[in-house]
Structure formats: structure tokens, C-alpha cells
Amino acid sequence: MHIDQWLEAIPPLSVYLIVGAVIMIESLGIPLPGEVVLVSAALLTLSHPSLSPLWVGVVASAGAIIGDSIGYLIGKTGGQRLFAWAGRKFPKHFGPTHIANAERIFNKRGMWAVFFGRFIAFLRILAGPLAGSLRMHYPKFLIANALGGIAWAGGTTALIYYVGEVAEKWLGAFSKYGLVAAVVIGAVVFVVMKKRLGREHKSDAEAPKQEETAA
């Protein structure tokens, strides 16, 4: 069962809680499909009247901000030991190369790395713990974290929702126009074929008369 089908089968309140929880846990530094869950929930609001895209964006933003903040505290207290353990458990996400690249980006970009890291898969997982381990000033981290979380979660939800609405209307209009075009083409073909058959029938009827006249 796909994630969107799974979400559709549960109550709206549970959808909000799952979206917020998955994104929060991902932001702690645990690799989960947060973006997939967010996009699926945003698409689900198009067909589920009890789901609000506004609340999906709100809970997703809250999950991102809270999860990153907890991840920051974990990184600040655990530091490199945490990354060494995570590298053994999740080498595809926390391998030495991943950590080194992320540290280089954070040391060079600071708050911008936290903000834009929310839009990049592996930085989204590493942002909180890495900022904590590098002792980034927490107020600066919190500002960048909050702005990035709202821009990513709220922006993604709004984009998916409105693009889905436009696509739905366009496809609906396309279907109507297609039906009208099919009816018109069918009518034209019918008239043309009727005239053509009429001419053929007339020709067939005149042929014996011409033969009689010639005789």
C-alpha cells in the first residue's frame, strides 16, 4: 500500500499527528521519508474534505522546528560520538564523507546552511545535530531553523495543493472540451458520410436509367 493510500484510510486528526511526528523524528537525525509523507498529505487534502492544507502546513512546520531544536540539543551533548554511532547504523546517510561535507557547508554558510539545508535531503536530517555539535549560537540556529521549517513545510504544502487544484481544474476542463470536440467531430463525420452515401445511392439509381436510354 502506498503512503497516500495509507493516509487516506485513517482519521484526519491522525493524519496531522503522523505528518508532524514523522517530520519531527526525521529532523532529530533519524532518516524517515518526511518529504514523501508531507507531499502525500498535501495531495490528500484535494480529495479529503475533512483535511485542511493549512493545518498540514502548520503541523509540518511545527514538527520541523521542534525536531531540529531537539536534534540541536542531542548534537550539542552527544557530538561526534553520535555521528560515529549513526555512521555505523546508517552509513548511507551518516558516512564520514556525508558528515565532512555537511560540516564544511555549515562552517562556511552558518545560518544559511540551516535555512537552505531544510530543502536538501541529507542536510535536512543532519541540520539540528550538526549545528549543535558545532556549537552554533542557538538563537541564530532557532531563527534560521524556524524560517527554513516554515518555508519548506508551508511552501511545499501550498505548492502541492494549488498545483493540484489547477491540474484538477485543467483536466476537468480538458475532459469537457474533449467531450464537446468528440461530439462535434462525430456530427461532422456523420453528415459527411450521409452526404457521401446519398451521392453514391443517387449514382447507383441513375445508372440503370442511363443504360435504358442508351439502349
Rank of each mutant, 00 (worst) to 15 (best):
M111V: 09
G95H: 07
I105F: 11
S133N: 06
K108S: 14
K92A: 07
I120K: 09
A121M: 10
I99A: 11
F116N: 04
G110K: 12
I125P: 04
I125W: 00
F94Y: 13
F106S: 11
L123I: 02
L126V: 06
N107H: 11
A102G: 13
R109G: 00
I125Y: 00
M111W: 02
M111P: 13
A113I: 01
R109L: 03
F116K: 11
S133M: 10
R118G: 11
N107P: 14
I105S: 10
P96Y: 02
I120W: 05
G128W: 02
L123Y: 06
W112D: 02
G132W: 00
A131W: 00
G110A: 10
F116G: 01
F106H: 09
R118T: 05
E103C: 12
R104A: 14
L130F: 01
F106I: 02
T97R: 15
A127E: 03
P129V: 01
R104P: 12
G132N: 05
A100L: 15
G95W: 01
K92E: 03
M111G: 13
A113H: 10
F94I: 11
F119G: 08
H98G: 03
H93W: 01
L123D: 03
T97L: 14
G132Y: 01
H98R: 12
R124I: 03
H93V: 03
I120E: 03
M111F: 01
A127K: 01
A131N: 08
R118D: 12
A102I: 00
A100M: 15
G95M: 07
H98C: 05
P96Q: 15
A131E: 04
P129N: 07
F122D: 04
F106N: 06
G110T: 04
R124F: 08
A121Q: 08
K92S: 08
F122G: 03
F106L: 14
N107F: 00
F106W: 07
F94L: 15
K92G: 04
I125R: 02
F122I: 09
G117L: 03
A127T: 03
T97E: 15
F94A: 14
M111H: 07
A102L: 04
A131D: 05
S133P: 07
R124A: 10
F106D: 07
T97W: 04
V114C: 10
G117W: 01
F115C: 13
F115E: 09
F116A: 06
L130N: 06
R124G: 09
F94T: 10
K108P: 13
F119R: 12
G117E: 01
F106G: 08
A102E: 06
A102S: 14
R109Y: 04
S133R: 07
I120T: 04
E103P: 13
A127C: 14
F122W: 07
N101S: 14
N101W: 02
F122E: 06
R118M: 12
V114F: 01
G132I: 04
L123G: 06
A100T: 13
L123M: 13
G128D: 08
A100S: 15
K108D: 13
K108W: 01
A131Q: 09
I120Q: 05
A113F: 05
I105R: 10
I105T: 06
T97D: 15
F94W: 09
K108M: 09
P129K: 09
E103F: 02
H93M: 08
A102P: 11
